[in-house]
Structure formats: structure tokens, C-alpha cells
């Protein structure tokens, strides 16, 4: 990953979890231990897909204490730009890959007397790692996990064994729903709430916790935007003095990297703010897809997050 040190790994196993989800196991290529990490961390996986290099973030689900075996679970997205399809269709046991060091944008607040967790579907993965960490430190938590149906409720059986009464599972097809209002109005002072799942679930928890008077700092969410595919467009990079084409299935950040322009990033999902770039000229419309910029920054037309956002128009010049 350009400037930063990364990890050389080998795919040690690929396991089919259900009809949509596969789990990938990684070990270090030279056999030495992988770095320890903190629950909620993600890794960016680098994929050599033909001529294109994709880098996509996935939450680590294995125990942070396990330095021999990193695990991620990936849900196949047939509509996406191809990251999950590449992993599902092309990645096999024994392959060599590169991953970034773990980075955490969804960390537990270690001061909390209690952690209240809401997971939706594949959003269960960061919680799996956090739960290992909390069990080890005798942390107080409860997990509410909703899935479309029993088949897609990945890992619910293992979690029942591990957590007992601390786990509550809800299946949409059995009309089971998390009662967010009851839960958010009955937590002891100092509790932190965490949500990872579909965007409407995250929005709902943010909105309901605010309505119940929770401070923002006690509400945590993992919200990686996906870089959507779209029409190709051209970007001028003033500092590097380059003009680059952004392909239909490519993000601006990926196009910069392909052109040898070093651009900072952490999450590649519009959440961390590291790739924020100044817009010098814009004749057209910026299509913002991130969760980072404030409304007034978007309105100003002076900022863009190239990891997920796109452009439609005749001319875009960036300060990069």
C-alpha cells in the first residue's frame, strides 16, 4: 500500500458459511505472528483483479488475541464494483495476498460500565472480535443481532453457546424485531451503544438514541460506504500535474493510485476523513457518497472524498 508498510499473507482457508457469505483465513507468509489488534478493527485487502488493483476494507472477526489466524467474513454483493465477487470467485486457499495493518474506527470505549451492541446481518463481524476482547477482560455487554432468516444469521449458533443470555437473536421472517426504544431508555449511566448493519438500521439507532437524550460520544457506528460504480469521468490533479481517467468500476482514489499518485487513506469507505481533498475547479456535479463531510462542506463544493465519491460534468480539478 504505497507509502505504508503492509503485511504479506497467505490464504489458509476459504469456508462457505451460508448461501451469501464466505469466510477467509489469513496467516503471515513467513509464518511469524500477525500483529495483535483491537476489537472492531478492519483490514484493507489488496486485490489484483486483472489490470486493476482494488483495496477494500473488511472487519476482522477473529479474536484480537489470535495472532496466527486473521478471519474476515464477506457477503457477496452482486451489484457492487466487484470486490466481494473477486473474493468469492477468485480467491482460493494457498493464494498470496497483501493486507494493510489493522486499523480501528469502531473501537470499544474502555471506560464504559456496559456495552450495548446492535448487529444487522453481516454487520455481526466486528462484534465477534469485540466479544472475544470483552470476555477476556470480564466486560459487561449484551448483543442484539437481527438477520433476515435463520439461514442468513451467520454464527448465531456459536454465539448462543458462547454468550447464553447476553445474546438476543431476531429473525425478520419470524416477525421478530429489536425494541430499540425499550433498550435505549433502560441502560445504566455511562453505557455505550454500538451499531453495525444496514444503513437504515444505523440511521434508526442514531436517531432514537438522540431522541432519548444519549450524547453522540456514546453512540458508535461502523458505516463503510461502498464506492458505487458509475459513468467514467476525467479528473485533473494539479499538484501532480496529471490528468486521469476514472473507470466505471473504479473509484477516484483507485484511479489516483493507478496513476502513481500517493494519496492518504485509512478506511476507503468515506468514514475516516483521511483522503479529504480540496476541489480547485468544478464544472459539473460532485456526487458525494461519504459519511465524513458536513452539509456545509458539501454545499461549498470545495471538498470531496475520492475513496467513494464520483463526478459528473465537464471539468474537475483537485489539489492532489
Amino acid at each position: 500500500m504505497s507509502m505504508l508498510a503492509s503485511l504479506d499473507v497467505v490464504v489458509t482457508d476459504v469456508v462457505t458459511v451460508n448461501s451469501l457469505i464466505k469466510r477467509f483465513h489469513f496467516a503471515r507468509a513467513d509464518g511469524s505472528p500477525l500483529p495483535a489488534f483491537s476489537g472492531g478493527a478492519h483490514i484493507v485487502i489488496e486485490m489484483q483483479d486483472g489490470d486493476t488493483i482494488r483495496r477494500t476494507p473488511y472487519s476482522l472477526m477473529s479474536s484480537p488475541l489470535n495472532t496466527q489466524d486473521y478471519q474476515v467474513s464477506i457477503r457477496r454483493d452482486d451489484e457492487g464494483r466487484g470486490g466481494s465477487l473477486f473474493m468469492h470467485n477468485k480467491v482460493t486457499k494457498g493464494m498470496s495476498m497483501k493486507i494493510g495493518y489493522p486499523a480501528n474506527l469502531f473501537s470499544l470505549d474502555k471506560r464504559a460500565p456496559k456495552h450495548l451492541m446492535f448487529a444487522g446481518g453481516i454487520g455481526i463481524t466486528p462484534f465477534l472480535a469485540q466479544i472475544h476482547q470483552l470476555i477476556k477482560t470480564n466486560g459487561n455487554f449484551e448483543l442484539h443481532y437481527s438477520a433476515r432468516n435463520e439461514e442468513l444469521g451467520a454464527y448465531s449458533e456459536e454465539l448462543k453457546q458462547l454468550l447464553g443470555h447476553r445474546l438476543h437473536v431476531y429473525y425478520d421472517d419470524q416477525d421478530q424485531r429489536i425494541d430499540f426504544d425499550a433498550l435505549l431508555s433502560s441502560q445504566p449511566t455511562g453505557t455505550h451503544v454500538y451499531v453495525c448493519g444496514p444503513a437504515p438500521m444505523i440511521e434508526h439507532v442514531i436517531q432514537r438514541s438522540a431522541a432519548h437524550g444519549w450524547p453522540d460520544a456514546h453512540v458508535h457506528f461502523e458505516h463503510f460506504a461502498k464506492a458505487p460504480p458509475g459513468e467514467a469521468f476525467t479528473v485533473e490533479l494539479q499538484t501532480s500535474n496529471k490528468k486521469i481517467e476514472v473507470g466505471e468500476n473504479q473509484s477516484m482514489l483507485e484511479a489516483m493510485e493507478a496513476a502513481g499518485v500517493d494519496a492518504p487513506y485509512l478506511c476507503r469507505g468515506g468514514a475516516c476523513g483521511q483522503c479529504e481533498t480540496n476541489v480547485l475547479e468544478c464544472d459539473g456535479n460532485l456526487q458525494h457518497e461519504d459519511h465524513w463531510l458536513e452539509d456545509d462542506e458539501r454545499a461549498s463544493g470545495k471538498k470531496v472524498m475520492p475513496c467513494v465519491s464520483r463526478f459528473k460534468g465537464s471539468r474537475l480539478v483537485l489539489d492532489r
Binding site: 505504508l4 489488534f37 495493518y101 489493522p102 486499523a103 492518504p264 475516516c272
Partner: peptide, 11 residues
């Protein structure tokens, strides 16, 4: 601060 928040393990 923004720079420090971006500091990763191994770097």
C-alpha cells in the same frame, strides 16, 4: 490531530 489519528500499527 488529523495526522496523529491516521497513524497505523507498523507505521
Amino acid at each position: 490531530l488529523k495526522y496523529l489519528l491516521s497513524i497505523q500499527q507498523g507505521n
